[in-house]
């Protein structure tokens, strides 16, 4: 039965245990990778930094662009991503909420 998240019991010993990440968690991870990289960040760095498959990365980047949290900049035909002001504010707010939830034992 697929519940959308990975249960410890579903793993055998050969498979490394995967931790379930919510959409919010993945968004935080992507935004944090871009922030960490400074002024701009390429898709490969985001892919490795946020630990995502290519398909999921494209989908999440499109969502974040739609929400105007990140913007795409082209340099020598290569795409880079930057945090918008709205994205920076959103990331700060998420960090606060994460801390708040964490204090009550809630992780997302």
């Amino acid at each position: 039965m697929s519940t959308g998240h990975v249960d410890a019991g579903e793993h055998n010993q050969m498979t490394p245990k995967k931790e379930y990440r919510s959409k919010a968690r993945i968004n935080i991870d992507i935004l944090r990778v871009i922030k960490r990289e400074g002024d701009k960040c390429g898709p490969t760095r985001i892919l490795y930094g946020a630990n995502l498959s290519h398909d999921r990365l494209i989908r999440y980047l499109a969502q974040l662009r739609e929400l105007q949290l990140i913007a795409e900049v082209k340099e020598n035909d290569k795409a880079f991503y930057v945090l918008t002001d709205k994205g920076k504010q959103f990331l700060n707010e998420l960090s606060r909420i994460e801390r708040f939830a964490d204090a009550f034992g809630i992780t997302f």
Binding site: A24, E93, F100, A101
Partner: peptide, 15 residues
């Protein structure tokens, strides 16, 4: 109120 704000952003049912 703050928990609701957190839920709107994260969709975490615990909040």
């Amino acid at each position: 109120y703050y928990a609701l704000k957190g839920y709107r952003v994260s969709s975490e049912k615990g909040l």
